[in-house]
Amino acid sequence: MLFPSALGPEILVTGVHKRINDAFQVFDHDLNKTVDVREIGAIVRSLGCFPTEAELLDIIDEVEEPNGFICFERFLPTMSKILMENKFRPIPEDTLLKAFEVLDQQKKGHLEPNELTEYMRQGDEPFTQLEMEEMLSSAVEPDSNLIYYKDFVNMMVLDGER
């Protein structure tokens, strides 16, 4: 749980502010309370949010300065609201696994690299070439050249929790 209900609302707010501040700082290279707009996806997502690209663009529209930077002062209230309202909730492991099963239409338990590529490179928010290569590099089991998605999901979820 992100916010144990036993804590009072003030503690909750300061806790949220701290987390946002910590994450922001990692990308604030010049320590001047600004980050490049291109980093905002990593910040929002690393705070445990799972927005779509379109939703992310909405956030950026709300906080971006004309010069392509994001100021902490403007980012903090927007992001606090997102976290407090628990928008963009995490995707549970079984939901994720079911999604892979949908793609595995013959129920083989695995996907071919080109099968997965076809799905990931289509739709409203297709993967870039780079994203695709990176995903395959960790998803494809080298000996069989197949994606055993159950193992893959397991591995990724475990790694994420470390």
């Binding site: 994720l96 999604a99 949908v102 793609l103 990931m120 994420g160």
Partner: peptide, 23 residues
């Protein structure tokens, strides 16, 4: 349509995973 939705979910999940790694 189901496949599209599934793909979107996987994309969304994977991008979050990459962001955390990036952090």
């Amino acid at each position: 349509e189901r496949a599209m939705r599934a793909a979107l979910l996987i994309q969304r999940w994977y991008r979050q995973y990459v962001a955390r790694l990036e952090m």
